[in-house]
Amino acid sequence: MATSSSTPAPALSAPARQRPRQDRGAGPGVTFGRVLKSEWIKITTVPSTVILIACTVVVMVGLAALFAWSLTIMAQSVGDANAPSGFQPPPDGPESVAGQVLTVPSSGLAFGQLLIASLAVVLIASEWTTGMIRSTMIAVPKRIPALLAKAVIIAGVAFLVGFGSALVSYLVAQPILAGEDLGFALTDDNVLASIINTGTFLALVAVISMAIGILLRNTAGGVVTAVGVFFVLPIIVQLISGLADWIPKAARFLPADAGNQMVAITTADDALTQWEGGLVMGAWALVLLVLALVAAKKRDV
């Protein structure tokens, strides 16, 4: 008794009807290459991400062009006998107009840094805020390959944005600078290295920001923290640097300060060289990424 007509009779699913599949689990499994492809699909299929990346390139090139134009005006006023008496740029050295033009390709960096840092935090933290991380971690339950693949993709995109913007900035700036005979070649001192490192620096900014995003799992908090590390911290250090001798010395090893040395054309005696800056910045990125991966592996999703 007590059986209604709508209750399925157990016989319906009795072992007799079982057809154990022989092919279970057959077919390709998870590889790092496939996870990379998946992360590439993810980054290219959210329209706002693509738009933000395009805007970053446009603005970085635009800022470089503006800077080049302002340098030509400075050059004109230097050559002009009727220049305002208070305006006396040094005649030579890195502060001269001729020295400054070499930094034109990387001049959009401060802005690019801000956008790439925000973008990297948003891309990873949104996995948690939207709940997408659960789908990601179910597809790649070992977790670390998924996060590493995302880091590779974001760093790769950031490198291309930085390198591409700097190269285009160089090309765009040449006709502007040519008017005042300020043009320069890619083969001039450290120019090409500076252009490449604009990309490298942004790639490392992206990795550091992504690590912050993983650790905080929160978009707003992550963006604020990343901006704090790259923009606010250097300002605070600047303000208190007079308090003790060691402060400015230690400040050279902050990510933002070290990273900026990577794109420098010339370096002061007590400053880090381009290579040292890159290594310090790379060490920050590596340590934070490892911390983030360990945390993500241990935590509940």
Binding site: V30, R34, K37, S38, I133, S135, I138
Partner: peptide, 23 residues
């Protein structure tokens, strides 16, 4: 959890991204 999806991605692209991890 039906909400384990990025809201700005299409259903097709969401499934495509998940499928890609396993070829």
């Amino acid at each position: 959890d039906a909400k384990a999806v990025h809201p700005k991605r299409s259903a097709y692209n969401h499934l495509r991204a998940m499928a890609a991890t396993h070829g």
